[in-house]
């Protein structure tokens, strides 16, 4: 049960993200939903590579060979950077939309998630 805890957190994060995406009208909350969803996926990747009691995967002078997997960490790093770019871009769209219409409520305009 305790071992599965991170995966339960992943599921909760993704459910929260999806909920925000589908049911929130505020554009900023939609972006938050996407970011929470992204964090859920990132946590999932990190959790995949974790080994109980593992050390950082550096072979030089390694005290023991029980290591966490390096690949998912590399993937997560990339995905965090990409998520950051996506969120920054979407927030800048929101600023421009707000300047244009004076509202960030998706219900008032024809756009929807």
């Amino acid at each position: 049960m305790l071992n599965n805890l991170p995966f339960i957190v992943v599921v909760i994060l993704m459910a929260l993200g999806l909920y925000a995406l589908l049911f929130k009208r505020n554009l900023i909350k939609i972006v938050m939903g996407i970011h929470v969803l992204g964090s859920g996926v990132d946590l999932f990747l990190i959790e995949l590579g974790y080994r109980t009691g593992g050390i950082a995967p550096i072979f030089t002078m390694a005290p023991r060979l029980e290591m966490v997997l390096p690949t998912p960490q590399a993937l997560t790093l990339t995905s965090i950077v990409i998520n950051l770019a996506v969120v920054a871009l979407m927030l800048s769209f929101i600023i421009l939309i707000y300047q244009h219409y004076g509202s960030i409520d998706s219900k008032k305009r024809r756009l929807k998630g």
């Binding site: 554009l27 996407i34 996506v86 979407m90 769209f93 421009l96 244009h100 305009r109 756009l111 998630g113």
Partner: peptide, 10 residues
Amino acid sequence: LEAAFKYMVI
């Protein structure tokens, strides 16, 4: 802007 936002979300 709206179209771009929609595309980006999707």
